[in-house]
Design a protein around this nucleic acid. Sequence first.
RNA 1: GUGGCUGUAGCUCAGUUGGUUAGAGCGUCUGGUUGUGGCCCAGAAGGCCGAGAGUUCGAGUCUCUUCAGCCACCCCA
Length: 414
Amino acid sequence: MANGVPPPGTADIFPEESRRWRKLESVAADVFARYGYGELRTPVFEYTEVFQRGLGGETEVVQKEMYTFEDRGGRSLTLRPEGTAGVMRALLNTDVLNGVEQRVYYCGPMFRGERPAAGRKRQFHQIGVENVGRVSPELDAECIAMLMHLLEEIGITGSVLKINSRGVMADREPAGELLRNYFAGHVADMCPDCKNRFERNLWRILDCKEAGCRQIVAGAPDYFSAYSAESQEYFNRVLASLDALGVKYQVDRQLVRGLDYYVHTVWEVTHDGLGGQNAIAGGGRYELFLPDQSKPVRGVGFAAGMERLMLVQDALKAAQVDPEEPPVFLVSLGTAARLENLKLAAKLRHSGRRVALEVEDKSMKAQMRSANRAGAVTVVIRGEDELARGVAVVKNMAGGEQQEIPLGELADKL
RNA sequence: GUGGCUGUAGCUCAGUUGGUUAGAGCGUCUGGUUGUGGCCCAGAAGGCCGAGAGUUCGAGUCUCUUCAGCCACCCCA
């Protein structure tokens, strides 16, 4: 079991790689800040009802992918499968229900009990934003534009934005009726999943990938025309705003998305070269009902899968990391020198420098090797002789030249 | 939940029709005379060959089981 292997669908991220994660997070934070978004950190688990009510009991995520457990107080808790519900729960402590705007972003681990595959982990990480309290097509467009802006800043090119409208809740019935009447005549030819969807989750038939179902879907009536005039106008204004912002999109009437809380605008950003999991980000406008609340929280937002973003960066050879400052390496000859170097290291570190040194008794050759491997640009060498004379030898690794520096001037020369 | 592929040193992998002490490259460590890295050379450490059972005189190699990983379906980010 615990043979250095983490549980299925989880991963250890070692320092070399976690630097990439930090870079991605910091670029995102920087971009979001320009749009007025601040970070909101919420717990990784919530009361189970938060997700059950928030995401809708019919969603597959809720039905079969949640990590739910009981705590010692007998409360049912769930590891968050997505970020929005918890953020909404937290924002109940603000005035969002009265229309006061909140702009927040989050990032961190999410948990879904799926079978792992390329770009799909059980503990995966999302970076997402929520704009809550206001309802406006321009806001939806700005949110989408911000997502595309982020992708641009992290070097992801060639992604495709697909967009659609789910209408408002009141549109579901008439539009759904139109689809139901049409699909009713084709149920016999559908895949087993879609036969089931026909009864329980009609709209999901639209994005079935089964060839037979897609053919049926291709002939489906234009449900958008069954939406209210307001819903149609809302969507058209989103598109107009995107045009104004120069954001390219494809209207895709088959785009439905798996979470039940979406209304009006929904979108998804895909990128090929990821294998089966080609969605790198998705979002939309939502009305989310929380336990004990009669009014829904209204907002718009998106989430991007961090692992997938990095996979795309890999494919594009666009990985970003901040260069590390090379350390000063202290070489010690003898225990007395080592003790002095330990003190010197502490002093330099307190003044902000990166310092590396060998603390085992090693030959000078071995220490120099370590210095080289550590990428040191300057090396400070001290032995009995230097100690006695109050100097240190400073060597430049690139050119190889070295000189003696009095201790008093040492800090300035490094 | 269903299917396919794969499990041999820290890493990437070889291991011939089953045959003695299991290999390479990279990495690590130590040397190549006094206190100097990268390149080169030499040497060393490091593996119950994923686990369990079976066939056999003999299994890294064959069979079964199991676990794990990857990939696909599904679902989604």
